[in-house]
Design a protein around this nucleic acid. Sequence first.
DNA 1: ATAGGGTTAG
Length: 297
Amino acid sequence: YGILMNCCCRTRRPELGLAFFGRVLRMGLRTNVVVATTVLQCLCGAKRTDEAVDILLHRMSELGCVPDDFSYNIVLKSLCDDSRSQRALDLLRMWENERGVCSPNVYTYNTVIHGFFKEGEVSKACNLFHEMAQKGVPPNVVTYSLTIDALCKARAMDKAQLFLRQMIHKGVRPNNVTYNVMIHGYCTLGQWKEAGKMFREMTRQGLIPDIVTWTSFMASLCKHGRTKEAAEFFDSMTAKGHKPDLVMYHVLLHGYATEGCFADMINLFNSMATKGTRSVSRCMDLFNSNICTLQNG
DNA sequence: ATAGGGTTAG
């Protein structure tokens, strides 16, 4: 019945899963941590976080199963998504004090750090960043990436750059996400030259820019009144058979709309039905030449 | 079974 619960949860019918779970309990069937955690996922997916907290803290032990790290992390994420990261931190503290079989792991810290950054609680996020390392949970590529992202969004590109160097120094390899947030940060500020540097560093590491790299590049062009260049980039992409996704269309459509290019909008709208491929790896040279053009112009 | 990146509308 765990599988059935999971289905209810994933098909966005949490109430079905919960009703079913209630029946299972009334029938006197035993449950275990995995199934109980699926119930937590159901509740959190239905934005019923408080009930999930209640089950986590009280009902699970009544049912004879001890919450594990997955159970906690799912509820913590839900609290953070509700912009209640401080409540999440309180729960994390309770968990630590229980001194049970498991303790907060890298997922836990990443979840709450991300929550604090999202709420603008920068110092609380930074405190946790330092705390996790002290407690023997080293920050990983996700921790660094979300921290760098927060710095970029605060327009603190120098600090973001320092964190990037620090992670490399500590042996944590940046990935696409890491470089994408850096490139996005520089492009947003119109610092095309710096963005180009990041792009080259990224490819030098053997990383292949993806649809997110291209989309944020195009969006920045549009925001700087250079929709025409974004459109050219887009056209050369599609001409090579790469299939843009919905977000990319939105970006360009919005760019056209802003500049009053309604005929182009209609054309693009009609071409959305055209087929293409998903691969974007061959866009690298395109991006490179675009960046070069921008630097020279 | 859990964590991070791109867009728009209002």
